[in-house]
């Protein structure tokens, strides 16, 4: 399988940006978003994906709340005599002190090799996995938008011998020269292990695509009437950028962000597999899966539950991302 990163690098989307076509040379307005939403709703797969994501978001927040703030499900409680119980097993009242029993005395998703409640760990993991995805993508987006925006808007400003645009675009090229997963692996392996390092590294290696199309978007938008108009009446750059250009460039950014989260979750699970993932006390779906693979014959649920959870969530992100892409792509929409 190609590495997750390759998925959208290797397939430059056939997307044209909104407003670039001749027939839509008006400032995109509320109606465009509404129209996109209508198209998106028609894609039943994407809508299903969106529901899954909504559910996931609720689960993640609940997970954080119920495993850390009010400990209803204790993901850390070790109950050695209760190890490797299959899903829906009842906790024995003999071996386990009352304090350590799971809610309702039942292990919804079974227990792992230390007798920890897999349901509690998955709950805790959902929040951590999601936050890795969101924060990594957030970092990538901020860098990508800033650099892409600078390049697209102030591209012609000279810094000594080279222009801002050249500088930033060459930097992008340099970053693209590194094999992404290999680079992430190298850095994560060499740095002290911490969940923040992983987020930052995934973010720092994932901004190039965003930078490139934000730049392209800005270059195209600058030539459009409503921007030239705003500039000519002396609106300050800040206003032009933030009230006219950024909102218009946001749609494709949203698409790539959605797919980016999926990629980041996959990358984290890959790192976990190689032993460089997030370390305890944080449980992530990736490291539950990587730990569970050794017990595939003894306790298959330790492998299949996190595995399919990852597949479903990543699938949901991808489907929603593609749905959004089609929804905001006027060329495809026409048919």
């Amino acid at each position: 399988m190609t590495e997750p990163q390759e998925t959208h690098k290797a397939s430059p989307s056939p997307r044209a940006h909104p407003g670039a076509g001749g027939e839509e040379a008006f400032p995109p307005s509320e109606t465009l978003w509404r129209e996109s939403w209508r198209v998106f709703k028609r894609d039943r797969l994407a809508v299903l994906g969106a529901w899954v994501l909504a559910l996931l978001l609720v689960t993640a927040l609940l997970g954080k709340a119920l495993t850390e703030w009010v400990v209803v499900f204790d993901p850390a409680a070790v109950r050695l005599p209760e190890k490797f119980l299959p899903p829906l097993s009842l906790a024995s009242s003999v071996d386990v002190p009352p304090d350590d029993r799971p809610l309702g005395g039942i292990y919804l998703l079974g227990t792992d090799e230390l007798g920890r409640d897999v349901f509690a760990r998955m709950l805790q993991g959902s929040f951590v996995s999601l936050s890795i995805g969101f924060i990594a993508v957030g970092i990538a987006l901020v860098i990508g938008i800033v650099l892409g925006g600078l390049s697209g808007f102030y591209g012609n400003v000279k810094l000594g011998v080279i222009t801002v645009d050249t500088l930033i675009m060459r930097l992008t090229d340099v970053m693209l020269c590194f094999p992404t997963f290999f680079l992430i692996l190298t850095v994560v392996a060499l740095l002290p292990p911490s969940i923040y390092n992983i987020m930052v590294v995934i973010g720092l290696t994932g901004w190039m695509g965003t930078a490139r199309f934000v730049r392209a978007e800005f270059l195209a938008l600058r030539k459009l009437d409503f921007v030239t108009a705003a500039t000519s009446i002396g609106a300050p750059d800040r206003r032009v950028i933030f009230s006219h250009m950024v909102p218009n460039a946001m749609a494709p950014v949203l698409v790539s962000a959605t797919i980016g989260v999926a990629t980041a979750i996959l990358t984290e699970s890959g790192l976990s597999f190689l032993g460089f993932g997030v370390q305890p006390p944080y449980a992530t779906w990736g490291n539950i899966l990587a730990d569970g693979k050794g017990f595939i014959f003894d306790a298959p649920w330790l492998f299949f539950i996190p595995g399919f959870a990852i597949v479903i969530v990543v699938l949901a992100f991808n489907v929603v991302g593609e749905g959004l892409r089609e929804a905001i792509n006027p060329k495809l929409r026409r048919r």
């Binding site: 070790v78 090799e113 292990p193 032993g275 305890p280």
Partner: peptide
């Protein structure tokens, strides 16, 4: 890192010491 049994010892020691009131943080490198 990379030794599953030691990782388990970490978790179990943390849990065992918590029961006598000793706060143990764990990390692996």
């Amino acid at each position: 890192s990379g030794n599953p049994v030691r990782k388990n010892i970490l978790t179990i020691a943390q849990d065992a010491w918590k029961k006598i009131g000793v706060k143990c943080n764990t990390q692996y490198f």
